[in-house]
Amino acid sequence: MKLKLKWISLILALSAVIMLSACKKKVAPPPPPPPPPPAAPTASLTANPNAIDKGQSSTLNWETSNATDVSIDGVGAVRPTGSQSVTPPESTTYTLTAKGPGGTQQATARVTVNAPPPPPTASSATEEELFSQNVKDIYFDYDKSDVRGDQQSSLQSDVAFLRQHPNIGVTVEGHCDERGSTEYNLALGDSRASAVRNALVQGGVAGDHVKTISYGKERPFCTESNEQCWQQNRRGHFVYQK
């Protein structure tokens, strides 16, 4: 039995070898490898500085490789690597194009041109500045709402300024120190604001340009409990109205 099996397996193995060799004969030989493609070009472009004021210049720097034809929009044909100063009149995006046998590559750099600061437009800004420089608050004695002697010069300059600038509207805020009741101080602050307004109107300022409001002791300028601070809070405060 063992012998018989040996023979069968030998025959099978031999016939397999014959069949395999017959198949191999039909396979075609591989084609030769293609030639390597030409390398793609590379390109980089920077601007330094990339933000300038109008009239100043910026330097473009670029590098390319594998390119035969390099140009920058607005500049023209350039060498493969180099730098150039530019003075754009307005913000400009420079585009470098590098062409070569391997294709085309682009790189961009933007130069921002800052607009010059606008000329001082609104005259109100100056007027408001003048207002805060020239108009002085009026200070009061404790529990008093009459304009005291040492405040008259401030009052006169306030009147003069407001008469010179008849377009300016003003709100006079009446303020009080922290002592006394909330309600009494609201009434006192109203009296202080009215006293200042009346003095302005008597000086020739148009009454319809002067509003009053009392803050009593609700919005103090200073929050300490001493006379220096209290004096700061007893005042007619001028607020510019557009």
Partner: peptide, 27 residues
């Protein structure tokens, strides 16, 4: 003239009012 503020009614009769006045100086 002078601040007049903080009224309160006679709560029993309603016939009088008390309030705070600065007409003579301190309230």
């Amino acid at each position: 003239k002078g601040p007049d503020v903080s009224p309160t009614w006679n709560r029993k009769t309603g016939a009088q009012i008390a309030w705070v006045s600065g007409r003579s100086g301190l309230p």
